[in-house]
Design a binder for these strands. Structure first.
Length: 535
RNA sequence: GCGCCCGUAGCUCAGUUGGAUAGAGCGUCUGACUACGGAUCAGAAGGUCGGGAGUUCGACUCUCUCCGGGCGCGCCA
């Protein structure tokens, strides 16, 4: 099926003849950056020559000779280049088979992998405190977490999207007190919340309501609404309050104590996280008898294992110091080191009117996620977040995003999608019908633009797997831009509906467009961006 | 001081888990419109991949070190 497998098999056989035994899967087959180096290339000769005590160039020539004596499927020539690369030139037939494969798989099956079949993963992200609206920075975690979840699903995992609501503790008291103060026409207490929304919400709050309960509900609903508008919906909302009431916190403390991981010092209760890689021990129960955030959070993570074999937390860079202690706690509870994973995302900096905006709920100078979505639209907001790796800090100039919104990459990709759909409409208007794929001779697809587009399409399955494994949805964004570029180029140079076009070519091109529709559809769905049929 | 992340074109960022001549968008300059929707396409200019050393047949990628930026560093969450 996959060309690369054919090439691997052929290389493996040639290697055996040369006296080298190598597992087929370890043979690297790559697509050369330079077209002059063929369609596919392998560096096995370079990789094995030293170990086999051979000259790489000679070994490569020997392998190439063996391959040329009995050319693998689709291969027209095998040649040696550079220090010992083996380059394969293929007839376009392999790309025509890609087209058939894409169309047969359809939007449902194309670029779907089974490597996660039978495994489950629980992804927790955003988890903002219910003390106010989400700020624009939260949007990055929403877009990233949701798209990562989609990638896992595409790869066969059973996925739970989860949000932890810290509806308890000191911050909630301050939040409630701030609401109550504004309600009474006073300033919030020291360390309280000074954002404008507090005043606004206080006015909405019934006089008889409990500020903490009412406020947390108000904030929660506000957050849910914005997340939904960004196409980020959650399967599970976990409440710290409910967790505390369930007795799970005491239970986990008992387990940790019985495991000998807990001790008393200076009136507080400590966990020996330093024995599991943390740089110091951590307090579970403060000297005033109150638990820290850490203890209920351990109980919470323990519960999450009922929803996934693999736990993933997505946290902002300011929480990276927290990773070791939770990882230590999970190991104390008997969970393997690799069953708990924390992805640290760097912060979003917002620039407005040429000045950096600090995203603080307490001081109230933030840009709300809602505001950003209203300004640029959900698709632009979401794709903007998914444009780059979360390992880098992201600077979003709000004015620039608004001003350049029509030049945003999202429109470039969506326009390609709209063009694809417009073809079907135009074809119908002109009475052109699409023949069954089996009756179409795809060998007519030989234009450089056609082959380039097919080449891009052939890459999506591996892009999806790689992006999942690297926890890097932005790789799908990059692919969708490349696919759109290939479509636009093809569209520009290859007419489809013009009257003087050969009917066989027309049919081939229409099927190529159909395959592109599937590829773009899959990638946009993974990104959580809409795939408009017209713009 | 210690830990995590980053440093690639004027700007914003990719770079296929070590490969051959480092890419895209924006911006600048120049072309393609009786157009299956030009929200497009083609070309040009623009690079000591922060500096240095090491490993390797081969380094933007791995290791060490220095410089610069962001974030965090015992009973906040």
């Amino acid at each position: 099926m996959d060309v690369r497998q054919h090439l691997r098999s052929a290389l493996a056989a040639a290697l055996v003849r040369a006296g080298i035994d190598m597992p087929r899967e370890q043979i690297s087959i790559e697509r050369p950056a330079n077209p002059e180096h063929g369609d596919w290339s392998s560096n096995v000769a370079l990789a094995t020559a030293k170990h086999a005590g051979r000259n790489p160039r000679e070994l490569a020539q020997e392998l190439a000779d063996a391959l040329n004596a009995d050319l693998p499927r689709h291969v027209t020539a095998t040649e040696v280049a550079g220090a010992g690369f083996i380059n394969f030139r293929l007839a376009p037939g392999w790309l025509h088979e890609v087209l058939v494969g894409v169309v047969e798989a359809g939007t449902e099956g194309f670029a779907r992998s089974a490597i996660g079949a039978g495994s489950s993963v629980d992804v927790e992200y955003v988890s903002a405190n219910p003390t106010g609206p989400l700020h624009a920075g939260h949007g990055r975690w929403a877009a990233y977490g949701d798209s990562l979840a989609r990638l896992f699903e595409r790869c066969g995992y059973e996925v739970t999207r989860e949000f932890y609501v810290n509806d308890r503790g000191g911050q909630m008291s301050l939040f409630g007190a701030s609401l109550a103060a504004r309600k009474a026409g006073q300033d919030p207490p020291e360390g309280g919340y000074f954002g404008e929304y507090i005043t606004e919400w206080a006015q909405q709050m019934p006089a008889t309501a409990d500020p903490v309960d009412w406020g947390s509900q108000r904030a929660h609903l506000d957050q849910v609404e914005v997340l939904a508008s960004m196409n980020a919906e959650f399967d599970h909302w976990a409440s710290e309050n409910l967790l505390a009431q369930s007795g799970a916190v005491e239970a986990v403390l008992t387990i940790l104590t019985e495991g000998g991981h807990v001790y008393e010092s200076e009136g507080a209760t400590w966990l020996r996280t330093s024995e599991f890689g943390d740089n110091q021990d951590r307090v579970l129960v403060k000297s005033d008898g109150q638990p820290t955030y850490f203890l209920p959070d351990i109980a919470y993570h323990q519960q999450k294992y009922s929803r996934g074999d693999l736990l993933i937390d997505i946290l902002g860079a300011d929480h990276h110091g927290y990773v070791k202690r939770m990882s230590a706690a999970m190991q104390m509870l008997g969970h393997s080191d690799d069953s708990y994973e924390v992805l640290i995302g760097q912060h979003v900096t917002l620039v407005r009117d040429g000045e950096e905006v600090r995203l603080s709920k307490r001081t109230g100078t933030m840009v709300e996620a809602r505001e950003l979505v209203e300004l640029v639209g959900a698709d632009v907001a979401r794709l903007t977040f998914l444009l780059q790796s979360i390992d880098t800090t992201q600077t979003i100039d709000v004015d620039l995003v608004v001003a350049e919104s029509s030049e945003n990459p999202v429109y470039y990709v969506q326009y390609a999608n709209a063009r694809v759909y417009s073809l079907a409409r135009r074809a119908e208007q002109r009475g052109v019908s699409l023949s069954p794929l089996a009756e179409v001779d795809l060998s007519v697809l030989a234009h450089q633009r056609e082959l380039a587009l097919l080449r891009v399409l052939s890459e999506l399955p591996e892009v999806v797997e790689r992006a999942m494994q690297a926890r890097a949805p932005h790789q799908v964004t990059t692919w969708s831009r490349e696919c759109a570029a290939a479509l636009h180029g093809f569209w520009h140079d290859c007419p489809i509906l013009s009257d003087d076009l050969d009917e066989q070519v027309r049919q081939g091109r229409m099927w190529l467009v159909e395959a592109t529709r599937i590829g773009l559809g899959v990638s946009l769905d993974l990104l959580g961006v809409s795939a408009p049929e017209s713009m």
